[in-house]
Structures are given as C-alpha cells and as structure tokens.
Amino acid sequence: MPHLVGAFTLIGLSGLLALLPNDWGQWLIYDRQAILDGQLWRLVTGHLMHTNGWHFAMNSAGVLVIAWLHGRYYRFGDWWLRLGYLALMTSLGLLVFSPELYWYVGLSGVLHGLILMGALEDIRCSEKTGWLILLGLAIKIGWEQWMGPSAEVVSLIGAPVATQAHLFGALAALPYGLWAFRRKKGA
C-alpha cells in the first residue's frame, strides 16, 4: 500500500503545481539556460510540470500502472528516492547530450526509468513478465529514437515529445539493475 500512497502523492503534487499561475510555473520547468545559470532545482521540478491536462492525465495513468505492476517492490521512501534519482539523471542526460533541447516538462523520462527498474526486479525475482516488459520497452525506445514520436501524442499534449528523455530515463535505471542482480547473487 505505501507505493499507492507514493503514486497518489506524486499525482497530487503534480496536479497542485498545474494550478500555479503560469508565471510561477515557468520557474519550475526544465529550462536549459536557466539551469546553466544556476537554477538547479529545475533539474527535478521540470518533471512535475505538464503542457496541458492531457499530458498530465497520460503521465498520471503511467504512474498508476507502474504502481500497480511493480508497487510491491517499493516502500514509500524507495519510491521517492527512485523518482528523485531518475529525475536528476534524466535531466543531466538532457543537459549534457541534448543541447538542442531548451525546455522540457513531464514525467515520461522518469516513468521509462521506473518501468525498467520494475522489469529488472521482476527478472531478479524470476518473473517472466519482466523479460516481456524489458523487450517491449527496448522496442518502444528504439522505435522512438529511429522514427520519432507518435504524431497523435504530439498533437494531444500540444508540444514536441522529448524522446531523448525516455532514453535517458531508461539508461539511468541500468546501474540500479546491475546492483539488483549483484544483490540476487549475494542473497
């Protein structure tokens, strides 16, 4: 149950931030130049912001699906540590390897990392579904890197989809996977 509390807290926090006046919300988005100028909080807070209600709804649904699929692996503190780590690492990936991306909002990069962490836990626990999720995620991210985002999603959220964030979120989960498998051998 703590994972559901974490999931609903994340959705609630993101929803409350959406109610901020637009001028205030602009201080929270991932803005490349502002981060380079020292506004480092944006490395994390940008993931809590969204372009519109559809974007928020899609990300909220993703949070709930991940909590349902893999919530048994998370205690409340673990949930927030993973979120913070993935937000920071996704943003750093964008900052270093995607200089053309000037702004970013949304949880999608973090969600891709969480789903990979959960799939790796499934595999560690000998659940075959983990391999299926891992394969599906690899195909999705590969397709996006090669073909770009879905035109329908771009239209729905009213902004370009930063598929690089999906890649960096998943890549950030890999060190966790190595640690999880070492933990299995030691158990």
Score class of each variant (00 low, 15 high):
residue 83 L to F: 12
residue 167 L to I: 13
residue 28 L to Y: 08
residue 18 A to T: 13
residue 105 V to K: 03
residue 63 V to P: 01
residue 162 A to H: 05
residue 48 L to T: 13
residue 160 P to D: 14
residue 35 I to Y: 04
residue 37 D to Y: 09
residue 166 H to V: 01
residue 152 E to I: 12
residue 126 S to Q: 06
residue 18 A to Q: 05
residue 90 T to F: 00
residue 20 L to D: 14
residue 66 I to A: 13
residue 111 L to C: 04
residue 163 T to L: 10
residue 10 L to I: 06
residue 41 W to N: 03
residue 161 V to K: 07
residue 122 D to C: 08
residue 40 L to K: 04
residue 113 G to L: 06
residue 27 W to E: 10
residue 151 A to K: 06
residue 43 L to S: 08
residue 124 R to D: 03
residue 25 G to N: 11
residue 97 F to W: 15
residue 93 G to T: 10
residue 26 Q to Y: 05
residue 23 D to P: 02
residue 48 L to N: 07
residue 108 S to N: 07
residue 96 V to M: 11
residue 80 W to S: 08
residue 92 L to Y: 04
residue 137 L to S: 01
residue 7 A to N: 14
residue 85 Y to L: 11
residue 58 M to D: 07
residue 34 A to F: 07
residue 63 V to C: 09
residue 86 L to T: 02
residue 120 L to T: 04
residue 175 P to V: 15
residue 187 A to T: 11
residue 167 L to D: 03
residue 125 C to L: 07
residue 60 S to Y: 06
residue 76 F to A: 03
residue 12 G to A: 12
residue 17 L to H: 05
residue 166 H to C: 03
residue 22 N to P: 06
residue 27 W to I: 03
residue 124 R to G: 01
residue 163 T to K: 11
residue 41 W to F: 10
residue 157 I to E: 05
residue 171 L to M: 09
residue 21 P to R: 15
residue 11 I to E: 01
residue 42 R to E: 04
residue 122 D to S: 08
residue 157 I to D: 04
residue 48 L to Q: 08
residue 68 W to R: 02
residue 137 L to D: 00
residue 13 L to Y: 10
residue 42 R to L: 08
residue 161 V to N: 05
residue 184 K to V: 14
residue 148 G to H: 08
residue 165 A to P: 00
residue 16 L to K: 11
residue 134 L to E: 03
residue 60 S to L: 06
residue 154 V to R: 12
residue 65 V to Y: 04
residue 15 G to N: 07
residue 81 L to H: 02
residue 51 T to L: 12
residue 92 L to Q: 01
residue 1 M to I: 15
residue 69 L to Y: 15
residue 84 G to D: 12
residue 85 Y to E: 10
residue 108 S to I: 07
residue 151 A to W: 12
residue 45 T to E: 13
residue 87 A to N: 01
residue 104 Y to K: 04
residue 93 G to L: 05
residue 102 Y to D: 13
residue 107 L to V: 05
residue 104 Y to Q: 07
residue 106 G to T: 00
residue 104 Y to C: 08
residue 32 R to L: 05
residue 23 D to T: 12
residue 142 G to M: 03
residue 117 M to F: 07
residue 174 L to V: 15
residue 182 R to L: 14
residue 169 G to I: 07
residue 88 L to F: 09
residue 29 I to F: 00
residue 20 L to Y: 13
residue 54 W to T: 15
residue 46 G to F: 07
residue 92 L to I: 11
residue 101 L to F: 07
residue 172 A to Q: 04
residue 11 I to D: 02
residue 118 G to T: 02
residue 88 L to A: 12
residue 164 Q to P: 01
residue 165 A to D: 03
residue 167 L to C: 11
residue 67 A to Q: 08
residue 147 M to S: 12
residue 140 K to F: 05
residue 129 T to Q: 08
residue 149 P to C: 14
residue 44 V to R: 05
residue 43 L to H: 09
residue 155 S to P: 00
residue 29 I to K: 00
residue 41 W to G: 08
residue 90 T to K: 00
residue 158 G to W: 11
residue 88 L to N: 06
residue 17 L to F: 13
residue 71 G to H: 05
residue 29 I to N: 00
residue 79 W to N: 02
residue 177 G to T: 06
residue 59 N to Y: 01
residue 51 T to Y: 09
residue 83 L to Q: 06
residue 133 I to V: 13
residue 37 D to R: 11
residue 46 G to T: 07
residue 80 W to A: 09
residue 93 G to Q: 02
residue 139 I to V: 15
residue 14 S to C: 09
residue 47 H to T: 02
residue 172 A to Y: 01
residue 77 G to N: 11
residue 108 S to M: 06
residue 123 I to G: 02
residue 90 T to C: 03
